[in-house]
Structure formats: C-alpha cells, structure tokens
Simulated assay, not measured.
Amino acid sequence: MHKENLHCLLCGTLLTEQISWLTLIQTFPTTICAKCEGEFELYTNTEPDHRALYTYNEAMKDYLHRYKFMHDVVLAKVFQKQLHNILRNEKRMIVPIPMHPEKLVERTFSPIDELLIAAKLPYEHLLEKTTTTSQSTKSREERLNTPQLFRIKGHVKHTDYVIFDDIYTTGTTINHAKKVLLEAGAKSVTSVTLIRG
C-alpha cells in the first residue's frame, strides 16, 4: 500500500482516500486533493501531431513556479498518473526537451526528466540544447524568430519519436526539436506536453 503522501502536495490538506482493493493495486498513489485537482483545466483541443493534458491557467502557473523555480522537485509526482496514462502505450521513443548543461547546474534538476521518471516512463536523450537563453524571457515574435535551439546528441536509431516538454506556447521549442530529429533521419515525430499555453 502507498503511504508516502498523507497530505496534498499542493495545499497540505490531509488526503482522505478510502482504502479498497483497487487502491492496493494502483500504480500511483494519490498526491493531491480533489479541490486542488479541480483547479487544473483539461486541454480539449487535440491536434494530429500534438497532444496536451492541461491548459495554462492560474493554478498551473503557480504549480510551474513552485516546481521549476522554487526547486520543489517532489511536485513532479502531481501529474504522474495522467502522464503515465497518456504515454504508457506510446510505440514511439520518448525524447525529452533538454536543458542546457549550465542551466541544469543552476537549477539542480531537469524538470522534464523528473516528470517522466515520476510517471515511470522510459525515455532517451537525443537532443542537446545549444543556448542558455530561456524561451520564457522572449516575446512571441522573438520566440518565432529564434535560431535553431538544438543539435543531435548521439545517433537517431528509432524511426518514430514523441517529443515531451512541460509547456507548448508558440510551438518554437517543439518545432525546432522536430526539425533536427527529422533532419537526422527520424521517420516521424509527434509531441506531448503537460500544458498548452
């Protein structure tokens, strides 16, 4: 039985989950209360080559701030079940969007990798970020006109890939990653993000 999270990871409320035979066989324990879960808005517009779980609202803005910038790495567990469910039957190899090595040292952990680890999903690093400049500091026009952000790290062995990132805003990051993978020999590349901005 999972007993690691007795309180909601977001608000601290005691989790009052009823223990049943189903609870005992669940892959993931409950990590947040129903009230906090209800504050996240599902993203309903699906596209052929991109899927997202949630829209960017105030609750998600607060979550990202705490997780990424306050270094609250345990919050990677908040969406572990949802990410596992959307990607567990994926036949394509998952490729996370990487951080620049200097940024990784500064932040101390990779938020994208930690989301996948919490969701118990296999992935392969095939991309290397070539700039330390964050897309979040740029205007929409600057993002759309950004030079290539990535280069291939290693060999593209699989023919089909799914890129994973935390948020899709203008699509620049995802599109740059897709372009470099396709140029390296990938047959097809789709993408999944936790959030659609």
Rank of each mutant, 00 (worst) to 15 (best):
N89D: 14
E142Y: 13
G154P: 03
N85Q: 12
E141A: 15
R140M: 11
F150K: 00
L149I: 06
E141M: 15
M93T: 09
S110N: 13
P122A: 06
M99Y: 06
E124S: 02
I112A: 02
N85C: 10
F109G: 00
V105F: 12
R88A: 14
L127V: 05
I97G: 01
L144R: 11
H125I: 15
R143A: 06
S139A: 10
K103R: 15
Q80E: 09
R92A: 11
E114Q: 14
L149D: 01
F150A: 01
L126D: 02
S134H: 13
T130C: 06
G154R: 06
K157P: 01
K120P: 06
F79V: 02
K120V: 12
Q135K: 09
F79N: 01
K91M: 13
K120W: 10
S139I: 09
K91W: 08
Q80L: 06
F150E: 02
G154C: 09
H158R: 14
L104Y: 02
P101A: 04
R140N: 12
D113G: 03
L83E: 01
T130E: 08
L127N: 03
I86C: 08
L126F: 00
R92M: 07
E102Q: 15
I97A: 04
I117Y: 05
I112K: 03
V105Q: 13
I152M: 03
R143L: 09
P122K: 11
T131V: 15
I86M: 09
Y123E: 07
L87A: 03
T131E: 08
I112R: 00
R151F: 10
D160Q: 07
P96Y: 04
Q82V: 08
N145S: 14
G154L: 11
E106L: 08
P111C: 11
I152Q: 01
E124G: 01
E106D: 13
R151Q: 14
E141Q: 15
K120I: 12
F79T: 00
I117M: 07
T130H: 06
R92I: 06
V95E: 01
L144M: 13
H158T: 13
Q80C: 10
D160W: 00
D113L: 09
P101W: 05
I94N: 04
T130V: 14
L144D: 08
H84G: 10
D160V: 05
S134N: 13
T159K: 15
I94P: 02
I86Y: 04
T108F: 06
T146E: 10
A119Q: 05
V105N: 12
Q82L: 07
R92K: 12
F79H: 01
I94E: 04
T137Y: 07
K91T: 12
T108S: 11
